[in-house]
């Protein structure tokens, strides 16, 4: 989805300014700005639901693996290492995934993604004002109105639609 929006932005250009510079079209930028925060939050939530306690039982420090008591064997027995992953490899991966989405660093980046293009209200105002300025707002409205103009209280008004009132049970 996000790659699709990036491709769409790169490949649609509106030319502006005396320098005739090219920039990604408004209509491809606004969907990204609104959708990205929604997607990121859901992805983080899915990771937490899917990997679940795999992200929880982690030892505190790399040095645990060198200590007596052997975090390595505890980790293997409690975490049921699968797919050929040893305890160090499993912990290494889970710590990286947790640092990406859950530590103060990762959690702060979720806040960052939620507000990347502006506040949640501001990015929607941009979408609204952009639609108003480009004429898209009126085009969408006209599209809806063209459908509504095809019928009224007396039935179909459009010439290509069949009048079915004669078989109505409520006639």
């Amino acid at each position: 989805m996000i790659w699709g929006l990036s491709d769409a932005m790169a490949k649609t250009a509106s030319i502006r300014g005396r320098a005739a510079a090219s920039c990604p079209a408004w209509s491809r930028r606004r969907p990204y700005q609104v959708l990205a925060p929604e997607a990121y939050v859901q992805i983080k939530n899915l990771i937490e639901k899917t990997v679940a306690s795999g992200l929880i039982y982690l030892n505190s420090h790399a040095r645990d693996f060198a200590d007596a008591g052997d975090a390595r064997s505890i980790s293997i027995s409690t975490c049921a290492a699968r797919a050929g992953s040893d305890a160090v490899g499993r912990v290494k991966l889970m710590k990286l995934l947790w640092d990406a989405v859950g530590t103060e660093f990762g959690g702060r980046h979720e806040l960052y993604e939620i507000n990347y293009s502006g506040s949640h209200e501001e990015i929607r105002r941009y979408a609204l004002f952009g639609a108003l300025a480009s004429g898209q707002y009126d085009r969408w409205k006209q599209f809806a109105e063209s459908c509504m103009a095809e019928y009224d209280l007396d039935g179909w008004k459009a010439k290509d639609l069949v009048d079915t009132s004669r078989i109505s049970a409520l006639r």
Partner: peptide, 10 residues
């Protein structure tokens, strides 16, 4: 408090 192994990004 940690090491690159514990906080590979931060």
């Amino acid at each position: 408090l940690g090491s690159p192994f514990d906080y590979p990004l931060s």
